[in-house]
Amino acid sequence: MRTFDFSPLYRSTVGFDRLFSLLDQVGGVESGTTYPPYNIERTGENAYRITVAVAGFTEKELGIEVKENTLTIRGEKQETEESKSSNVLYQGIAARAFERRFQLADHVEIRGARLENGLLHVELVREIPEAMKPRTIPITNGSAKVIEAKAAA
């Protein structure tokens, strides 16, 4: 496997340290963890959905948190008296605790989450602030007057 040294770029860039950290982590973050399975889909031009298979979990046993552009989905199965007293001969449905993390791009917001048929759907939207959207600057010819703003004295 190839590794890249980003240290020379740190000397000539400002504000890209998070990007370089993400690039360093690629390949090592998800190694070995496949539970629970999930999908990431694009549902519109700036809309996304993360779907996580959480069969057997209730809303109370699941948690969603966003902190510093990281979406964390946690699940912890609560053991009930019924499950303690039952004699399971084979358990193919996993009921172990999990924590799944997703790195979000800047300006991605969570619109909502719903649990439906054993699938947790998390709706995301990327909304770029008006100040960051491209805008057109009108060009005038040399004969046009420039309007000066006078300060009130």
Rank of each mutant, 00 (worst) to 15 (best):
E61C: 03
P134F: 03
T51I: 01
I50P: 00
T51V: 03
T70P: 00
P129N: 08
D24P: 01
A97R: 10
Y10W: 07
E127T: 12
Q103I: 05
T70W: 01
G112Q: 01
F6R: 03
T51K: 00
N87G: 10
P37T: 10
F102D: 01
R100L: 04
G44C: 02
A105S: 13
R101M: 10
E68M: 09
L104M: 12
L89G: 09
V26Q: 15
K77R: 13
S12W: 07
S7K: 07
R2S: 11
A94C: 08
E68Q: 10
A113H: 15
E82G: 05
R42A: 02
L115C: 09
N69W: 00
V26A: 11
A131N: 10
D5Y: 04
S86M: 12
S86D: 07
T80M: 10
V52D: 01
A149T: 07
L124Y: 05
V66Q: 00
A94D: 03
T3E: 14
F57S: 02
A153W: 05
P8E: 13
D106T: 07
R49V: 12
K145Q: 14
V66L: 01
R74S: 14
V125D: 00
G63T: 03
E68N: 14
A53H: 05
N141C: 08
N69T: 01
E123G: 00
N87A: 07
A55H: 11
A53I: 02
A95V: 04
V108Q: 00
G15N: 14
E30L: 08
Q25N: 10
A144W: 07
S143A: 12
Q91A: 15
R74G: 02
N69D: 15
V26I: 13
F102G: 01
R18D: 13
M132W: 13
A152I: 15
N117M: 04
N117I: 01
R111E: 00
D24H: 11
F4K: 05
I40F: 09
I139S: 10
E127D: 14
R111T: 00
G15M: 08
V146I: 03
E65D: 15
L9V: 11
R11W: 05
I110R: 02
K145G: 06
N117H: 09
Y38R: 06
S31C: 07
F20D: 10
R100A: 02
I139Q: 12
M132N: 15
R101P: 02
L89R: 12
G142N: 12
L71D: 03
T43Y: 08
A55V: 06
R11I: 03
R11A: 14
T70C: 01
Y90C: 07
A131D: 10
L62A: 11
E68C: 00
A151L: 09
L9T: 04
S83C: 05
D106R: 13
A55E: 13
Q78L: 10
A144G: 06
N141V: 03
L22E: 15
T80V: 12
P129S: 09
P138N: 05
L71T: 01
A152N: 14
K145E: 15
L62K: 09
T13C: 03
R49K: 11
A97S: 13
R111N: 03
Y38W: 13
E68L: 04
